[in-house]
Nucleic acid binder design. Structure first.
Lengths: 190, 190
DNA sequence: GTCTATACTTTGATAGAC
DNA sequence: GTCTATCAAAGTATAGAC
């Protein structure tokens, strides 16, 4: 049996992904987590903000490991990049364009409103960029090029989520996959 | 004197940009527009959704013309692309990372919640992609390559807004500008 | 026709019953 | 210690006074 606290965080991640931060009510979270209403304030004294910070942190780890799992399963980072964008397009199609990155949605909502949540999102993105840059360096690229390529990789992935989700079409993720592959190849081949 | 309706829409655009759709209250909008509360429902019988649809449409036109103005001021689309990303980085820095694209924030919030608003955001993005692809074709590129490059252009710009706003650093917009320039150059040079 | 005052719902959060 | 019942505040929307 999963811990109540974990169920609440997981439910928050799912709901933030679809409705965003302000669009998600605490009552929805506890209902989805099948937990009594009071328990959320027992586990998160800081209320909604503290819960959101935990959800962002958790989503950051889950999505990073998801991408790394696909990336590392391939022989090199270039074909790995292709696989990541293909998988993203497949997931979008399979989930009716609902299952996207919750961090981006929350980040845009709270960046100018809540400093602790902005910082939590920043930590996640910085971790993603650092981890990805490390893989590209390991693939043979110089540090500066690897970092820039990692930033473009994340931007193309998030931009693809945005456009695909809005258009309900996988086209943008395919187009961005081509560009990401070229960027990664350029950062590695020297 | 500007029309009351226009002032309300402009105020909504500004507030959506900073607080998002669900994070913006109707009372904030009418206060910012310096209009009496009832007038918003006089002009927008459909309530908040109808106001948001008008705000998205308006933001789409304003931002498109802003980007085109910078792009067309340069001799070719490649140097124009450089200018657009440089300008975006400068605006972010000048506005303390608050002044970003309102369409992306709202799109991620409502894509799975409100079909009319999702459609409004889709119309805006499709218009941006079509217009940009037209400029790239005019620059000498084949249609399919121009369209893919336009999609990557928008993704890199929106991804840059996301990462820069969260990190409060212009780094991502600089890195993405380099990639966008390379993508546009590749789509035009044949 | 314009706008003020209000109705009703939902929100985040808590106090006190078990 | 866990959870139910409730609170005050804020949300959208409207009805009716000018």
């Amino acid at each position: 049996m999963t811990e109540t606290r974990d169920r609440i965080v997981d439910a928050a991640v799912d709901l933030f992904r679809v409705h965003g931060y302000t669009g998600t009510a605490m009552k929805q979270v506890v209902a989805a987590a099948d937990a009594p209403f009071g328990s959320v304030y027992h586990h998160f004294r800081g209320g909604k903000q503290e819960l959101a910070a935990a959800a962002i942190e958790r989503a950051g780890v889950v999505y990073r490991d998801l991408v790394l799992g696909i990336l590392d399963a391939e022989d090199d980072v270039v074909t790995g990049t292709r696989a990541v964008f293909d998988a993203a397009a497949a997931v979008l199609d399979a989930t009716d364009y609902a299952d996207v990155c919750p961090v981006a949605t929350v980040a845009l909502e709270v960046a100018s409103t809540s400093e602790p949540l902005r910082a939590a999102c920043d930590t996640v993105f910085a971790d993603w960029i650092d981890t990805l840059a490390g893989r590209l360096e390991h693939g043979g690229g110089p540090p500066a090029a690897a970092r820039s390529a990692a930033i473009a990789f994340i931007s193309l992935l998030e931009g693809g989520f945005l456009l695909c989700r809005t258009a309900r079409t996988p086209e943008a993720m395919r187009a961005n996959g081509d560009v990401a592959v070229a960027v990664v190849a350029g950062a590695v081949d020297r």
